[in-house]
């Protein structure tokens, strides 16, 4: 290989590394659980965060005029192994919602109410914690684990 090819190759690699590093810095989001968010307190304000939590069904409110959706999420573990050890995501979400001692955070989302939003769903939200302690979500993804996983039918279903 001639030196000019090696030089060209190195230049391109440098450009790609620069692209990756700068883009990573510009768009990094911190994965956090509700507990971690609460623990960080004011230092978490205005940091780009991806927050996960269990949706509490009774707290879902939607104002269709202003497209303002508010609800609370309860803490669930961010560790998949821990979730598996506690009996799977569906079980963990159920416990989180029914445990009043879990830490909770209020969420505000402006936009269309997602089809999958309901109690005991796992919400994965991208956004920022405001000064008011409310999490302002820009993006809202939902997981409803029980429905299509290996659910075993209930005994009552048999006749």
């Amino acid at each position: 290989m001639k030196p000019k090819f090696i030089l060209g190759f190195l230049l391109i690699m440098a450009a790609v590394v620069y692209l990756i590093v700068s883009s990573t810095k510009a768009s990094a989001e911190y994965f956090m659980t509700v507990d971690e968010l609460k623990a960080e307190g004011s230092s978490a304000v205005n940091k780009s965060v991806r927050l996960s939590g269990a949706v509490i069904g009774d707290t879902i409110q939607y104002d269709a005029d202003t497209l303002t959706l508010t609800f609370e999420v309860a803490h669930v573990s961010g560790d998949n192994n821990e979730i598996e050890a506690q009996g799977g995501l569906a079980e963990v979400l159920y416990q989180a919602v029914n445990d009043p001692t879990r830490s909770r955070v209020q969420v505000v989302y402006i936009g269309v109410k997602p089809d999958l939003l309901r109690g005991e769903a796992q919400a994965i939200m991208t956004g920022k914690l405001g000064d008011d302690g409310v999490f302002h979500a820009d993006e809202l993804l939902l997981k409803c684990p029980t429905r299509y996983e290996e659910a075993v039918p209930e005994q009552a279903a048999s006749k």
Partner: peptide, 28 residues
């Protein structure tokens, strides 16, 4: 794999969203 790497080295899980891909791939 970035979330895995960052967790390994900093202990904190950090993820990158669509803006990362758009920004990094557009010039390419």
């Amino acid at each position: 794999i970035f979330p895995l790497i960052s967790e390994l080295f900093t202990g904190q899980k950090v993820t990158v969203g669509p803006p990362f891909y758009q920004r990094a791939t557009a010039p390419l």
